[in-house]
Design a protein around this nucleic acid. Structure first.
Lengths: 231, 231
DNA sequence: CGGTGCCTTGATTTTCATCAACACCTGTGG
DNA sequence: CCACAGGTGTTGATGAAAATCAAGGCACCG
């Protein structure tokens, strides 16, 4: 395997306070791997053997209910740790990690976690901040699902993706990974039919534009209004 | 203030691996306080100055939306830490902590958090497990809200409370703290009317019994069935 | 160029929120 | 002690939102 360059990690929060030599040591213990779109990096319930850092692509964190329905818990953008079950004392993954697009990720065996935490200043702190961010996101999701109407939830979901993984294109901001109506319905607790109707209506109003598996938001502000502010 | 007894903390997960002398040191830095039913220990958005341990009572963790609706995020039973914003690098509380019943809690200034983590074996690990548990609970809530019908969600909510804070009484298990239909509607994202109708129906079927602000589950198994299994 | 996966749109039905009215319990103050 | 106010709980009637049922079109892949 090709030697990994230090620049991959410099600047990412968990490693920001480290010396070049420390980053070198971390990289030398890492496994790098590419995953095709649709591949599972790990699955719900599997023993948590490694933790991961996403270098490129987008990960969809998915849970499946007893009745077979899927719920998309969150999307993870490049630069974030994921599969960090060891940080919260779990020995199996609580959800599946599916590649929304082609992905590139580093990983380490979980036994290194405590070593990293002890040896590298800021690693634990920053990782727990990531965790805190996710907790906050879940709390917001619960609030939304409990109080908002479907239209507002779908608007919020689009905005979240645009903010997190938006790519500027002519005439708007495009969500940087492939996404279907069914995916959006799994994020918002509705059906693909309802999502399709909403997107059609918004397209007529010039708020979004969409092609197969891709959505561009042309009038973000309008969406913010639809989302009931604070989305 | 009366000197606190070491037995208060022995056996609780974050302190389970500590010596008597260490527990003494921790207690000597703690502030103990009683809160009336309905009091806020802290409120959403306030600067996080202290972290807490609930000794007795039940805490309701509540978020308020921009439109004034309330959502009950979770209930905290005695023996658990709460208000642990420092653990996730936050400097303000993400939600309010309201006493569902009369409560007794210890608290420490946040600046002691890192000291406790460093000095006391298992404190950090166990605290992060608590955090992990909450994350898991939120994930389950999101899944429920996204996929289950109202009746199933209300059944799940009752079961969760019974499991966490159930008190055995003749003829069933009673939820150990005062709870209104409105409270349940805020946990499940529905209205008090719908909750009232469901409870009435269940009472007719002999599954629950209820008086003002108190609910006893007489046929837990029936509720499990209604909740769509795995509640 | 056939098949599969993705998307759209209309018709019907169901669920649950909303609107409305009232009964009851508990504590308070005249 | 009684009246009354405010929080709590019940129940019926109505309507709107969104799921479900149904059918078909379109784009991309092999």
């Amino acid at each position: 395997m090709a030697r990994l360059d230090e620049s991959l990690l410099t600047g990412l929060p968990p490693f920001s306070r480290l010396e070049r030599s420390q980053i070198r040591a971390i990289l030398d213990q890492a496994t790098s791997r590419r995953y095709d779109e649709g591949t599972a990096v790990f699955r719900e319930g599997m023993p948590a053997e490694r933790f991961y850092l996403l270098l490129d692509g987008t990960i969809r964190v998915v849970r499946t209910t007893e009745t077979g329905e899927q719920v998309i818990a969150l999307h993870i953008p490049p630069g974030q740790l994921f599969g960090i079950a060891p940080a919260i004392g779990r020995d199996s993954y609580p959800a599946s990690a599916i590649c929304a697009a082609e992905c590139l990720a580093l990983s380490w065996p979980v036994r290194l976690w405590s070593g990293f935490s002890a040896a590298y200043d800021g690693f634990a702190t920053e990782s727990y901040k990531t965790l805190g961010g996710r907790l906050g996101e879940f709390q917001a999701r619960v609030t939304d699902l409990a109080t908002k109407a479907v239209e507002q939830r779908v608007a919020s979901a689009l905005l979240r993706m645009v903010n997190q993984s938006g790519r500027k294109v002519e005439g708007g901001i495009e969500i940087a990974f492939p996404i279907t109506r069914a995916n959006i319905s799994e994020m918002t607790g509705t059906t693909l039919h309802t999502v399709s109707r909403l997107l059609s209506a918004w397209e007529k109003q010039g708020i979004v534009r969409s092609t197969r598996k891709h959505i561009t938001v042309t009038e973000p502000h309008q969406l913010v209004l639809l989302s009931g502010a604070a989305g």
